[in-house]
């Protein structure tokens, strides 16, 4: 564990709490992509199957359980409790275009050809693109509630912080590098660059998040 990892994980935790707060206080899931949230559940479930096989630490275990449980709860809120506030007609990204290629990539690139390891690879590839339905929705509507942009910023910060974490680990753990996680992580962070630009130049200056027409 290093400071970048810890801040990254806390940022991830914060993003989920911000999203829950947004849904509960506005009593609405307007502006949130159900597809992205469903992809995150898939990511967490396929990656964290290792809670049954590898014990790392109480911290690690608790975070994994929290990410699975909280994201499932968000799906419940969107599909049941606040269902009328979710508009599927603007959440139209075709997730099969993400699931298929990620499954193929996982079959091609993995560390061991076992069910657990191939699913782990799949989850890494899928996480890198899971935000696309959400960003696509943002692009379509052209604007977002400020709290939704804070959610996205915290999520993006989590990914961005994993990069210095890997650099730190490379130098402190005798040249270790995880090529699958690093490649997917760089792609994932790159997807946020456009969003970050608008977030820093508009939202943090007190303006509304609006994309140029």
């Amino acid at each position: 564990m290093n400071i970048f990892r810890l801040l990254g994980d806390l940022s991830h935790l914060a993003s989920i709490l911000i999203l829950l707060h947004k849904i509960q206080t506005t009593r609405s899931c307007r502006g949130i992509s159900f597809k992205t949230q469903a992809l995150y559940v898939t990511v967490f479930v396929t990656r964290y199957l290792d809670i049954f096989t590898d014990w790392v630490s109480l911290y690690n275990f608790t975070m994994k359980i929290f990410f699975i449980a909280s994201t499932c709860y968000i799906l419940y809120l969107m599909k049941m409790k606040y269902r009328p506030t979710h508009d599927p007609s603007i959440d139209t990204f075709r997730v099969e275009y993400l699931l298929g290629p990620c499954a193929l990539l996982a079959l091609l690139f993995h560390y061991r050809f076992t069910v657990l390891e191939v699913l782990w690879s799949f989850s890494i590839f899928l996480e890198s693109v899971a935000i696309l339905p959400q960003l696509f929705m943002l692009q379509r509507t052209g604007e977002a509630e400020t709290i939704t942009t804070h959610y996205l910023a915290a999520l993006g910060a989590y990914r961005a912080l994993y990069i210095p974490n890997w650099i730190y680990r490379y130098f402190t753990e005798s040249g270790q590098i995880d090529p699958i996680a690093v490649t997917a992580g760089l792609v994932q962070t790159a997807l946020y660059l456009d969003f970050f630009y608008v977030y820093f130049t508009k939202v943090l200056q007190g303006q509304k998040f609006e994309l140029p027409a």
Binding site: D50, N60, W120, Q176
Partner: peptide, 10 residues
């Protein structure tokens, strides 16, 4: 290249 234990990261 050595790979770090990836179960450690979230």
């Amino acid at each position: 290249i050595q790979q770090p234990d990836h179960h450690d990261e979230l």
